[in-house]
Computed example of a mutant assay.
Amino acid sequence: LLSEEEKDNLERLSKSRVWIIDPVDGTREYGEERTDWAVHVALAIDGRPEIGAIALPGLDLVLRTDRSLPLAPCPKTPRMVVSRTRPAKEALDVAEKISAELIPMGSAGAKAMAIVRGDAEIYLHTGGQYEWDSCAPAAVALAYGLHVSRIDGSPMTYNQADVYMPDLLICRPEWAERVLSLLG
């Protein structure tokens, strides 16, 4: 088990299956009684985000890897979710280059699920997170057929000794190549 709320047990590194949990992703939003916070539960298998669920209690919604639905049609003008308090410079630069509408939002899980739900097309984060911030969102996004990677295009790898993850891209497959090319 790896969780934001528990002391790290490095025995997990010898396991092929590790649960990665964030019981309250978006503590500030939760405390402000907003709807853009989430609960993350994921199972990483051999470093890959394979099984997961994201609860959005403020929306009375749970999105899961075993109950994915087809994506809605992709609009021509992209919408990009960004941090409502500290949007990343790289995300703002990409948004300007592709004329994306910016949607400020709280937790990483809420942002990623906005892409799954069809409320936005791109979530680009370069401000650093931890494995518990992105494992469940990555698992659910992959189950829905979305692109998930680091900003250099490499896969997200979990259950590492250093749980810090500097960046993340979750987006509609239609936008992945273009966004990655603007970052490279």
Rank of each mutant, 00 (worst) to 15 (best):
G106Q: 08
A53I: 08
Q160F: 02
E4S: 14
M113L: 13
G47F: 04
L142P: 00
N159A: 11
S99D: 12
M105V: 09
N159G: 03
A141H: 01
P104R: 00
A100Y: 04
P87Q: 05
G128H: 10
D167E: 10
L182Q: 15
P78Q: 09
L1R: 10
V82A: 08
E177L: 05
V18W: 12
L13S: 08
A55G: 08
R67C: 12
T77Y: 02
V163C: 12
R17P: 13
I151P: 11
G127V: 14
G31I: 12
L59F: 09
I103G: 06
D93C: 12
G47Q: 04
G118Q: 09
V62F: 11
N159Y: 10
A112S: 07
H125G: 01
R86E: 11
E101K: 11
E50H: 14
E131K: 04
L56R: 02
G52L: 05
D60H: 15
G128N: 15
R67K: 07
I122G: 12
L10P: 13
G26Q: 05
P70H: 11
I103V: 12
R17Q: 14
D66F: 13
Q160P: 03
A55C: 08
R64M: 15
T65V: 06
A136E: 04
D22W: 02
D22R: 01
R79A: 14
V41H: 01
S107R: 02
A91H: 07
L102P: 00
G26A: 06
L92A: 12
D66P: 00
D152N: 08
D133F: 00
W132S: 13
G153Q: 06
Q160T: 03
R48V: 13
V41R: 02
A112N: 08
D162W: 15
I122V: 14
Q160N: 07
E33G: 02
P87F: 08
E5G: 15
A44V: 09
C171W: 02
C74V: 06
E29V: 11
I170C: 05
D22M: 04
P173N: 15
E6W: 15
